[in-house]
Nucleic acid binder design. Structure first.
Ligand SMILES: [Mn+2]
Ligand SMILES: [Mn+2]
Ligand SMILES: [Zn+2]
Ligand SMILES: [Zn+2]
Lengths: 135, 135
DNA sequence: AATCTAGTTTATAATTATTCTAAAGTGAAA
DNA sequence: TTTCACTTTAGAATAATTATAAACTAGATT
């Protein structure tokens, strides 16, 4: 992912490209594979990577803006912390509760044959499949 | 659900049948249909139904004990509060974010035709399907 | 370049769901 | 009745998140 794309992600999220935001955006989006994280885990990784630390509030604000702009999605995981996902396409997850780790499942790797119709007056927005793992 | 079953639920959860616990258990389990709730919503309903109010800590403790004993299950819903479910069988949910309401889907009403195999050394514990609704 | 200003970062406070604590209450058994 | 382990309860503690407000910065304007 090029610098110009990083700047585009920031601007399309209504964020001016400050030093902190560029660091966060580069860390999130300059990678090949999906990245699943909580604000806490992201913060720890940023501390390891950077020389100066970024205030938690800035990380919360930036992540939130990316989520609103659709550059990050939120994954519902049992527990108190919110999980975010750099994969914003429609997809599913394995969840390994031993390691608290999420693993992507491509939408095409799950085929649902039968599904009930939505309740009266409602439509289906999306279908999320969550596969819990054990050892 | 008979009084004897209520007492059985309490005892099998390691709880002595006190006045408060019996009230909570009757409210949760003496009903035909599935009941989805948060501790906050349960508390509000109990206040309406009962003359004396039960301490929040008692509600938390009792619900937690029922969950540990397997008499309640926990449903993962986007948001900060924990949702509980009197339906402890394997099943799925519609979620209406407008009303913050869960609706049960019988396990037999969803058939998954294709599913990826679990990662190395792991097995599938269970599969949860969550269908988000819109208007 | 110096100035200006809206937007930003940060430390800290506030909020909220949940859990903990410790003091007072209860009830079955001795 | 007395006892004592178990309970309830109000309030304190905790943890994730959001809000606040003062100091700072990036760009735009002179
Ligand atoms: Mn969660
Ligand atoms: Mn949740
Ligand atoms: Zn994902
Ligand atoms: Zn249910």
């Amino acid at each position: 992912m090029k610098k110009i794309d990083i700047l585009k992600k920031l601007r399309s999220s209504g964020l001016r490209p400050t030093k902190q935001r560029v660091e966060i955006a580069k860390f999130l989006f300059e990678r090949e594979k999906t990245f699943h994280f909580t604000v806490e885990s992201l913060n720890k990784l940023l501390i390891k990577k950077l020389t100066s630390k970024i205030a938690l509030a800035t990380i919360y604000n930036t992540v939130h803006a990316f989520k609103i702009a659709g550059h990050l999605s939120e994954v519902e995981v049992r527990g108190k912390k919110t999980y975010f996902d750099t994969n914003i396409s429609n997809h599913h997850h394995f969840y390994d509760s031993e390691t608290a780790e999420l693993i992507d499942i491509d939408a095409n790797d799950i085929i649902i044959q039968k599904i009930p119709k939505a309740p009266n007056g409602k439509k289906i927005k999306n279908v999320e499949v969550f596969i819990n793992l054990k050892n």
